[in-house]
Nucleic acid binder design. Structure first.
Lengths: 352, 352
DNA sequence: TTATGTTTTCCTAGCGCTCCGAGTATTTAG
DNA sequence: CTAAATACTCGGAGCGCTAGGAAAACATAA
């Protein structure tokens, strides 16, 4: 008999067994109490709870996850964590899901499919309860992994075709259309579009197309110009883009921006140049950022449903996990916030 | 003999054993190869790798974590995820730590000790490799848990006394001092401080004290007024605070802000009222946010070392995990960015 | 060839919890 | 008062992997 003592590797943490011993019940009962308190008698429940409290027992998540073959983890991939817009959504999800005992694993794609793929791969090895991605554009491999994983997936912040599973968002095309229409209704005739990263940001691209369509539908013309600022510090890039624009197209009278930071940059540049906003040029952005209603003039914009998306995603995920029936496509809509930067005198004189 | 077949719970995932069988080696060898490739002969290594590839084997993190009694997880608690300032730091940490195979678990305290405590408790049950907290103020229970946990801890974004373990940050008192001194050097005589959540944001409070001290040291007076906007939408609150301030103290000629969003709100309000910035009132903020150099006038501010902190924390954590010696206190410093909002004509006429 | 040292591979006992199936009270029905 | 139903509890076999030590294979020296 090889009875040699193996080096015991035990961490000296309090385990469920310790609790069981102190409460004078079996470990199974403690486990049951922890998972389904109702199925344990009140009396034992109390004894167990008090044992837990005395010992300061903390369940070992790893052991639980291994035994149950699942974790209470939800993987979330957003394009950028620095972007406050997504932060609000994640924040809301965190609150709702956290209250239900789920832990978010946060990753970012930097607007690159390959980065997203890496994040998804990492997250999947956690056996997550669900995965949440941003947008509908993913690499082939990402889609494959997700499809094979048998994990509920929610794509958010966009509506469109070929969803992986569940979809929660709004139409960016409609946003763009609404932006341009708003300017047109304010009396603008020659409209330009200024955005960033149009090459990689599918949603920004959609907004641009929507704006384009409105210009075509309502003015029978085209964007006078579309400028892609590319990457880098946004507001600064916007200053340059604005300068560029009014040089090449001095008769522009309305600009649709891909986000409010760009609006702000352009607005400042306009002021610097003595161009009046909205009288000479009207502007509308997207995002309703913190500062948007505090500039002078305040910035007209579209408020995306940041928190609402977070909440809807959370609820959707919860229902999916519990196996409840769940809508596959949820349109949250958005809100036009007309403010001073598009409030032209002309709109008054142009009354129908 | 109770030979009844128990319902096997096996997930049909590919396990290490499957790989071992295909490669015709033992499971231990596969495990060893995965953990320390050098300790396995090249020949076997190749065979194992190819088996892994054919089967598409993905290690079960839970099982590994349970057996090894540790996870490659790092818990990070920031006051707010929506605040882009912390987002940059986290982003940087994510990049560096992620490359080393660590996964960040992100939580937020909402500037409340109790929330922080909850997050820490949750994270500790993951047996993290390290914990990263923001600031030095924690609940008694938080400190206790962390001390007992034997997990490396890094506190960031602040310098001060009684750290739990390692400290990476800069002095907010110095920031405040620098802000006020800058205004004073620009010729301001009557300085006020406008901040938010001073009651709960220890770092903002420090900056306020630092500013106070500079006013005392250099002007021999006191802040004409300290306004705490409280919570809520910042820029808007700042407009109100500004109005309030110039009503009660019409002779104010310089304002130190707790952050740039407040500066912006006040700046717009000033413009609305025809008050010239910086000539009538100079302003300096904190944060160097995206928009800060794109307003008109551009906003003087202090740039906190967001990314630098993230990188330093990551490196520090890595060294701690590896058991390498590590400085206990790292001062990253900060940078004064003088811009137009504090560039007073008076500074010229006041030349010494 | 044997002894000795090295390197490589493998055996095995856990890690702490979950959940199936079975056992034991307790209550209700007959 | 006994049988049947109900409500609680408990035993214990895994979950998939790690890591200590031993065995095996290989290399070198005597």
């Amino acid at each position: 008999m090889s009875n040699k003592l193996r080096a015991r590797r035990s961490t000296q943490r309090v385990t469920m067994n310790d609790v069981a011993k102190l409460a004078d019940v079996s470990a199974s009962t403690v486990s049951l109490y922890l998972r389904k308190p109702d199925e344990v008698s009140t009396q034992l429940g109390k004894r167990i709870q008090s044992a837990i409290d005395t010992l300061g027992y903390v369940p070992n998540l790893m052991a639980g996850a291994l035994a149950a073959a699942r974790t209470r983890v939800i993987g979330v991939v957003v394009p950028s964590m620095v972007n406050a817009i997504f932060a609000s959504t994640v924040n809301t999800m965190q609150k709702t899901l956290g209250a239900q005992g789920y832990q978010l694993l946060l990753g970012h794609s930097d607007y690159e499919e390959s980065e997203e793929e890496a994040a998804v791969r990492t997250f999947l090895s956690w056996s997550p309860s669900a995965m949440v991605l941003t947008g509908l554009t993913h690499s082939r491999e990402t889609r494959r992994m997700l499809n094979n994983s048998n994990v509920p997936v929610v794509e958010m912040w966009e509506l469109g075709s070929n969803p992986l599973d569940t979809l929660v968002g709004f139409s960016h095309h409609d946003v763009g259309y609404t932006q341009a229409r708003h300017l047109i209704e304010a009396g603008c005739q020659r409209i330009a579009f200024i955005g960033t990263r149009l090459s990689v940001d599918e949603r920004a691209k959609q907004r641009c197309r929507g704006s384009e369509k409105a210009v075509r539908d309502l003015l029978g013309s085209q964007h006078a110009r579309v400028i892609d600022c590319g990457f880098g510090r946004m507001a600064e890039a916007a200053s340059r883009a604005f300068t560029d624009l009014i040089t090449s197209h001095p008769n522009i009278d309305g600009i649709v921006f891909s986000n409010d930071m760009l609006s702000l940059g352009a607005l400042s540049e306009a002021q610097r140049r003595g161009i009046r906003v909205p009288d000479d040029i009207a502007m509308i952005g997207f995002g309703d950022m913190d500062f948007s209603d505090c500039t002078l003039p305040s910035l007209s914009t579209i408020r995306p449903p940041r928190e609402e998306i977070g909440e809807a995603v959370a609820q959707s995920v919860l229902r999916r996990i519990k196996g409840l029936p769940q809508e596959k496509r949820i349109d949250i809509g958005f809100e036009l916030l007309p403010r001073q930067s598009s409030l032209r005198a002309s709109i008054l004189s142009h009354a129908p």
